[in-house]
Computed example of a mutant assay.
Amino acid sequence: MFFYSFKNGLTTAAIDNNGPISHLVLAFRAGSRYENAQIRRGLSLVWSSGSSGSKVWSFASRDVFGVSLSVPRDQAPLALSILGHVTAQPAFKPWELQDVVPTLHADRDYRNPIDIAIEDAHRAAFRTGSLANSLYAARHDIGNIKSSALVDFAAKQFVTGNGVLVGVNVDAEQLEYYGSSNAPINHGPAASFVPSPYVGGDWRRSAASSNTTSVVFAGLGAGSADFDRLAVQAVLLESLNRACRSLQKNSSGVTFSAQPVQFVYEGAGLVGIQMTASGNGHKDVVGDLVSKTISTVKNAKFDKIEELRRAVANNIKSKEECSQTTAVKTAVDVLSSSADSEALPRAISKVRAEDVKAALAGWLKKPSLSAYGSIANVPYVDQI
């Protein structure tokens, strides 16, 4: 991997696997955590819907917004130009925003209960902090977000100090030349990172007509640059993934599933279990299923630590085989100052069973719980 940081603040990263398809990513520190109180209601969804396509697609998190473009390798120079103009200098014309209004309503309607529970878990965990900002526009704001607000936000966030240009299967000199002289990115300093304190607690929403109830039980997780904690967290999640397999249920008209999840951001994150119960009779048993799952988490064993470490290391290697995934991950890592690709594998090799036990105890000390659906029988945090 070749890095180059220009005086204007822009960073380029090139990885050449000698593949026939080039994958380009231009990303900025412009996730929902950087929205202020006036534009907090989900601008990320506007960009995500407007930029998606078969070969050009966008991605957004609470930390980062970016656009990815995949083309045949010999078309990379032209693709760089397109990517720069589409991403770094969006017009946000009023009629363009009106064109995506139907898509935004459809996107909201197609959210499933677990998507809502995950958003609410962030609200419970971080409350009014920047990481509580939603990725989705409120229904009453769709069609009312002004183009001027988007233009102002882009002018502030889509600047060189906030940006990274990543190319996989692209010549490094070509990427550097474009970044230094041709990229149409406004100059500006990096955004100030504002910590989002973890609080914890409950966030519950009833949807009595829903035939599905989703619950997220989580605690404070590692930040993106804390490799030691991320390594321990990865081993913890692998162990919990194995434990959750025994909790799957599909009988008596009720389907239940549980799986570990993590959300990693700059400075902090969430780690926990997401659970979904569905079926006509699920509302009567969902509370017991959630309690049983959390009890299993609390009593997790880590006696096969070497096997867990190997599994985690293999998972990391398998993900690196996808060039497009590598391009996006590299962009996110650079913007969070965690671009050392070997740091996490090194830390994983040193994880001990007692480290994982301590991490689990820390998570359980002050948990958060969100629930969406038939929530009457779902326990509160202080009942667990």
Rank of each mutant, 00 (worst) to 15 (best):
M1H: 11
N8Y: 05
T11L: 05
S22V: 01
L24Y: 02
N36E: 10
L43T: 07
S51H: 05
S54Q: 14
V56D: 08
G66Y: 06
V67P: 02
P72K: 05
R73K: 01
G84N: 06
H85W: 08
A88L: 13
A91L: 13
F92P: 06
P94F: 10
T103V: 15
D107Y: 10
D107A: 14
N112V: 12
P113T: 06
P113M: 05
D115T: 05
D120W: 06
R123W: 05
R127L: 09
H140P: 09
N144T: 11
S148I: 15
A149R: 04
A149Q: 15
F153Q: 00
F158V: 05
G167N: 09
V168N: 10
N169Y: 01
V170C: 10
Y177S: 14
A183E: 03
Y198D: 05
W203G: 02
T212G: 08
T213W: 01
G219Q: 05
G223I: 07
S224M: 07
D226G: 06
D228V: 09
A231Q: 06
A234S: 14
A234N: 11
L240G: 08
C244V: 04
S246E: 15
K249T: 13
V254A: 06
A258N: 04
Q259N: 15
G272K: 00
M275K: 03
S278F: 05
G281I: 08
V286F: 06
S295H: 10
K298V: 03
K301I: 07
K304R: 15
K304S: 14
A343Y: 00
A343V: 12
V351W: 04
V351I: 15
R352T: 10
A353I: 10
K365R: 14
S370K: 04
I375V: 12
